[in-house]
Design a protein around this nucleic acid. Structure first.
Length: 404
RNA sequence: GGGUAGGUGGUCGAGUGGUUAAUGGCACCAGACUGUAAAUCUGGCGACGAGAGUCUACGAUGGUUCGAAUCCAUCCCUGCCCA
């Protein structure tokens, strides 16, 4: 089998491993079952999960078997790692809905057919019925408090109030690994680097119970050059669900990344061959835009499919370059075209309130059909709909089409 | 259980009776410059209203006052120290 671990390393995915050489050898020797946990705290994944899916996908392509663990049970607690406050809790129903939505998204990355078909499990299925006394006796006794609170990730919480409830998270996640290890012969847990301590917990638990064949691997988290989490937009996170973040917006996010991020993004979020990435990432100055276009297209294709990616691309070309068309722009059909420019801006979702719409106009940030609007009380009229539509633009990059 | 310090806008954090929709940093939006980049500079950043202005907001609920984020009472939550 291919040396997939080495490949992932070369590509820059891997941050830490419990035992590099053993893992590498194992993955070349046999088809390994591994798992990745995803918390269903929202009805869509965001790009924070993207790298995880890429790694899972690559491992599966190399012949290994993925388990996608939906944290339906643990999400009820909330992972305290790195958080400064107690996470908001969700009801069972909300969680179940989220699990379904996320399943669909994961299907783009891993195959559920064939010899090493992926499976999806939900830890609510085994965690919710746990008996507390037995759990504490069998699992709780394997952890020491001193070791737990010594962990960096709990340090912050220790000062601001870490509850026992949250401490239980480590035990539960560790138990998940043990459960999957016993039931599916799952040998590796992968996760973002912030999960390192939780993953180690599972590995150690399995060791203490008596098996030596469990490993952990963490991959790099997507961050910007200044160390912040990548994927924040004006509207919050960059979601993978097209209802929450349109493919066009999604495309634009990657089209507009900083020069210094190009290589990392291509490496981690596309399947392009290394040589191609090398070529693209070394383009200088203005020419690096070519690399950004390709990155945006490839990444959008992975998440939304080729058709949507093409649409987003041609919409972008229409707006920023020559040719193309306006077909794929976010569009609103107007019942009554005689509305004020302010209402139109709010209606299009370009600004969240009328006050902000006014601010935008007075600052010269609003353009209608390539003409700057400087009159707050402007109303749309027939003349604005030359070919049956009007193009409203905010700043340089945000467009919206109105059809009559 | 006792003592003590706190809970402010997306976030961090000032403010301790009126000029406070609330200083400042970060984040975010727009303008200029550019390459749909970065950096920099400028403006903006609760809602409604054309505007004067009105409403909502400083943990919760009541109260004092012409007037409260600021004072009082009760409650909820959190840190720290002691048991």
């Amino acid at each position: 089998m291919t040396d997939i671990i080495k490949e992932l390393e070369d590509r820059g995915y891997i941050e830490q491993m419990t035992n590099r050489d053993e893992i590498r050898e194992l993955f070349q020797k046999e088809s390994v079952c591994f798992y990745i946990g995803i918390d269903p705290t929202a009805n869509s994944m965001h790009i924070g999960h993207f790298v995880a899916l890429m790694v899972a996908s690559r491992l599966q392509k190399a012949g290994h078997k993925p388990i996608i663990l939906m944290g339906g049970g643990t999400a009820a607690i909330g992972d305290p790692t790195g958080r400064t406050d107690l996470r908001q809790m969700l009801t069972r129903e909300e969680l179940d809905r989220n699990v379904e939505a996320i399943k669909k998204q994961a299907e783009r990355f891993v195959s559920f057919e064939g010899e090493n078909a992926a499976i999806i499990v939900n830890n609510a299925d085994w965690l919710l019925d746990l008996n507390y006394i037995e759990f504490m006796k069998d699992i709780g006794s394997k952890f020491t408090v001193a070791k737990m609170i010594a962990q960096e990730c709990y340090k912050n919480r220790l000062e601001t109030g870490l509850t026992f409830f949250e401490m239980g998270y480590l035990l539960l996640q560790s138990y998940d690994f043990l459960y999957l290890h016993d039931k599916y012969n799952c040998k590796l847990q992968i996760g973002g680097n912030d999960q390192w301590s939780n993953i180690l917990g599972g590995v150690e638990l399995i060791r203490k119970i008596g098996s030596e064949d469990s490993y952990g691997l963490t991959f790099k988290l997507l961050t910007t050059a200044d160390g912040k989490k990548m994927g924040k937009t004006a509207k919050g996170a960059l979601w993978l669900n097209p209802e929450r973040t349109s493919p066009y917006e999604f495309y634009q996010y990657w089209r507009n990344i900083e020069d210094t991020e190009v290589r990392k993004v291509l490496n981690l979020l596309t399947f392009l061959p290394d040589e191609e990435i090398d070529r693209l990432a070394s383009l200088k100055d203005e020419r690096i835009n070519e690399a950004k276009k390709i990155a945006a297209f490839e990444i959008t294709k992975l998440i939304h499919g080729e058709e949507e990616a093409k649409k987003a691309e041609s919409a972008a070309n229409a707006l920023f370059g020559n040719g193309g068309n306006t077909e794929d722009m976010p569009t609103t059909k107007l019942e009554d075209i005689n509305i004020s420019i302010i209402d139109a801006i709010v209606l299009a979702g370009i600004a969240p309130s009328k006050g902000q719409a006014k601010t935008l106009i007075s600052q010269g940030g609003i353009t209608l059909n390539e003409e700057k609007i400087d009159d707050i009380s402007y109303r749309l009229c027939d003349n604005d709909f030359k070919d049956g539509y009007a193009i409203l633009r905010k700043g340089k990059k945000v467009f919206h089409k109105f059809e009559k």
